[in-house]
Write a protein that binds this DNA or RNA. Structure first.
Length: 226
DNA sequence: GCGACAG
DNA sequence: ATCTTGTCGC
């Protein structure tokens, strides 16, 4: 798939891409999971994005390998269009990954997006791989009811009378993370996997490691300025 | 028109 | 997203 070069083109493409998202379980046995994230410079006129994916054993969470990719000249950060900025380099990193993941946890939202096409959805339909969106803050919607300050607590994330995801407190005393469907998975199954891939820290292991890997990719690409 | 706004 | 030491709390 070729990606749009302008924000206007990206917006025009969103409806048909969103229509391709599969919101039910259509996954293989999960043996290898991966985390996906990107790192950028705070102010960067060249709009360079450093992406990384880390593969790990789904059961032991042992890292199996990682890959990175850097791309300049894409879209700037625009709320709602994040996927079009990060997926191109992420797809490149995916192609270089030494192990093929059966499921990918993406840093950012999936279906919890104004047009149902968060970065996790776009990566999923692009690669045709099951994905889950794991975000650290809200883009749209609000948490229904109270979220207990207990590890494991969950509450529905609702927007326009629709459940678009869930807030999950992965650690007592920490802000929740927001889980939503990316592609080829149900919300229930997604929540079960995020829980299973946690290590007592706020972020699940795949996403946490991917964040560190993406930072390393950025520093390695540009040691002087970052 | 105004405010909100993943990373 | 990134810039950063010390500090508060379990």
């Amino acid at each position: 798939m070729d990606f749009p070069t302008t924000a206007a083109a990206a917006r025009l493409l969103q409806p048909e891409l969103a229509a391709r998202v599969i919101t039910q379980d259509a996954l293989p046995p999960i043996r290898v999971v991966a985390g996906a994230d990107a790192s950028t410079l705070r102010f960067d006129p060249t709009r360079t994005v450093h992406a990384a994916m880390v593969a790990l054993d789904a059961e032991t969470l042992t890292p199996l390998g990682e890959a990175g990719a850097t791309r300049a000249g894409g879209l700037p950060y625009i709320p709602g269009l994040l996927g079009f900025r990060e997926v191109p380099p992420l797809a490149e990193a995916f192609a270089r990954l030494p192990a093929r993941p059966d499921l990918i946890l993406v840093d950012g939202h999936g279906l919890a997006h104004p047009r149902g096409l968060g970065v996790a959805c776009l990566l999923g339909v692009t690669l045709d791989v099951p994905t889950i969106g794991v975000a650290k803050s809200l883009l749209v919607g609000s948490v229904e009811g109270a979220l207990a300050d207990t590890a494991g607590a969950e509450a529905p994330l609702v927007w326009k009378d629709q459940v678009i995801g869930a807030a999950m407190r992965t650690r007592r005393g920490a802000n929740p993370i927001y889980v939503s469907i990316g592609h080829r998975i149900s919300l229930r199954t997604a929540l079960a996997w995020v829980r299973a891939l946690g290590r007592g820290r706020r972020l699940p292991e795949p996403t946490r490691l991917a964040h560190e890997a993406a930072t390393r990719v950025r520093l390695a690409a540009r040691p002087a300025a970052g």
